[in-house]
Design a protein around this nucleic acid. Sequence first.
DNA 1: AGGCCAATACTG
DNA 2: CAGTAT
DNA 3: GCCT
Length: 563
Amino acid sequence: MEPSQLFKGYNFLLVPFLRTKLASFRHNLYTKNGATLYPTINQFAKQVKKFNSELIPDYYDSEEALHYTTIIVVEDEEKLTDMTSLSSYLKVPKSGFPLDEYKVLRLAWVTDSLEEKKLLPYSKYLFSFPEQKGKVKRERESESLSDVKEEKEPSKKRKRKSVDEEHSLIFEKLASPPKIEDIKKKVLADSESLRASTPESDEEDLKNMSNNELIIHYFSQMAKERKVEGLQFKSLSYLRAINAIKNAPKEIECREDALSIPKIGKSLADHCVEIIETRKFGQLKRQQESTEAHVMKELQKIHGVGAVISEKWFNHYGVRSIPDIFEKVPESEFTDAIKLGLYYYYDWNQKIPREEVTAHSEFVSDVGKKIDPKFIVQTVGSYRRETKTCGDVDFFIMKEDCNDETKLSQFLTTLVKELFKSGYLKCSLFPAHDQLLKFLTGGQLTDKKFCRRVDFLAVKWKYRAGALIYFTGNDILNRYMRTLANNKGLRLNNEGLFKPKRRVIDEANKMGIRLSKMHFKEDDWTLVEGEDEEKIFNLLGLRYLEPKDRNIGNLSEIGGFRL
DNA sequence: AGGCCAATACTG
DNA sequence: CAGTAT
DNA sequence: GCCT
């Protein structure tokens, strides 16, 4: 195995420190992968004192770093019966040593990590002393040296949860949703105010609209209706028609005019005629007035509830309002995300004033600076597009020249932890993982009324532009740019712009399929550009768009380019 | 008949 | 895998 | 719902 430096910066306290041939072989392997081994506390402490700075990654304060990267590895589990035996193997000095502040892991953590070529979460490998009372006997109790190699139950189910216990405690708290009773109470209290502030359109100036304007007006509403129904491609057709009408040379006066416009077929042409002649759109009105559409729209405002679930709740359980949910839908239908979506139903459906997002940014980036000023915390999303209000707050985390996922993830982990401790973070929409690069949460400033949706994303330096484009949006621009890339035989994703390698082109040809249909495998594609937004735009044949110019409503607003 | 305004992550 | 999210 |  080549030295991966997987354990760089890690200190292993080995108990007992075996000196068999096999053990020496393993020790050698660990060292080659960057770990530093210690048989006793004495040597460890001495070394720590001497090389303090080197042992500590720069993104942690010293104590934390030590606790995170120093682990006690149990080499022979049968020799360890209790804390006393552990201390004696490590020759804990009379002055004492806070052994319990370090994780005690089974040897399997090291071997599994090596095998998977990544640092696995500690949680699955925590060693516990055999309970004298035989009370909490864990299934994988006495695992001795001979069998560390085979069976990998944890590696199958691995990938969960994070690192050190304090963190997992925090994350556990963050991730556990409120109790149904509390959700219900808050929703019922909030539902009044939300209903009160439901704005509706002013039907009066419809008369002053030209034919085309009126058609666009109705079609865009219809697009929304179809989308709520889960008919995303019908919805798409309306949007495309709108785009085509905007580019049409003249007013639509009759059916033929309409049919002459691309993207308008028989059905939409009929709608046009109706709208021109009656100034109304019956199908839209019926749709909008149906309770089903109304209820489905309300339900889909719950984070975690989309077209399918809302339809089920409406038809199968007969839900007709938000409070209805608690009466009719069995609790088993609520995922943790939905519970949070319900709890924060009111909060999360409020627009966030730009000034408040600024305040969030300052708060979070201050906390980040205290952890390590070299990390950049940038606010992206609609805020970067300079919109007056935002739906959520998106934070981007990176560090100059840093492409090390572990470092990024450790920074993000610390950041999240601090933000939680400060009371800012209220919840998370999924549990934290070992490599925490993305985190979706709710955050609230102490002087503000609402909890907001807050997202964190840590990105490698070399992919920052690709990621930045993606998370700056808007979504329409993203999809447009990706289509553009596909049409050029390229591929745009959240890392950057890629071109296919020779053999992928050949393979696609052989199979007679389009390149864009080829499954994306890192090895098959070469990164063309991931660091410079402008270059990505230009490579796609677009002029660079300032973030504020990326609030496009449809494709026609991108100057001078058409598919 | 089947793609289209994408590509990818996470839950259950 | 389907559903929802980004 | 349009287009190929």
